[in-house]
Amino acid sequence: MEAGNAKRNKELQIRHVYKSFRVDAENLEVLRDVNLEIGEGEFVSIVGFSGCGKSTLLRLIMGLDPVTEGQISIGENEVKKPSREVGMVFQEARLFPWSSIAKNVEFGISDKSLSKQEKKEMTRKYLELVKLNGFEDAFPAQLSGGMQQRAGIARALIGNPDILLLDEPFGALDAFTRINMQNEILDIWRKENKTMLLITHDIDEAIFLSDRIVIMSERPGTIQEVIRVESARPRDRGSEEFLKIRKHILKCFLGSSDIDLEYYI
């Protein structure tokens, strides 16, 4: 009973959310009537053109900006400001260049009741989770882009959020590192059992990782379609289902059906 309650309490609900900005005395509508429910432990991706408002939506969920209309809540609680329930991984790792990797990861701990020793132990554990053990004392500038992003992920996870938001976290990485990181995040998702909401413009990434893919149209951003990916993980990027979904998503964006499927293998 108790467990059931806890489960229901962590569901992310986005109901009739509108967001507009005032630009030069004109109203710019960025999001229009966005509705989405994400269950506990679910992996959902949002894909869309740049400027379709997906990052804005993430900022609203994070509580960094207020909604213009509608409601975003986690379980019973409406999101009004950043809270420990939601963690965020940014596109750039955003590490403090003056702190060691261990100190950067430790910065993610907001629980003040923990002792120094406990914090150290947690930091060690999460560095191990993202495979950065041995780099505790290195400065961010001494690490590659992929390793910096791992530290960013560890910092977001160490605070033990229920929901992890990922804002194009692998967008700045090269193709090989990106595929590597996708496997890693899948591994972390399995181990940590977090709800993950990923924003990406990489269609393959979305299909490879997600339970559901949300396709957003642009200006103003609305949810165009939600696609469920059923196949078991790890997914074969060349499988028929994978390519079928990929073709479908491309069709949504490019509005044409004569895309040569073979070309993309």
């Binding site: 960094l64 950043p82 809270s83 940014f90 750039e92 955003r94 907001s110």
Partner: peptide
Amino acid sequence: GKLLEVATVLEK
């Protein structure tokens, strides 16, 4: 400002 945002997100 991006680093400040990290601190905001973490409720510092």
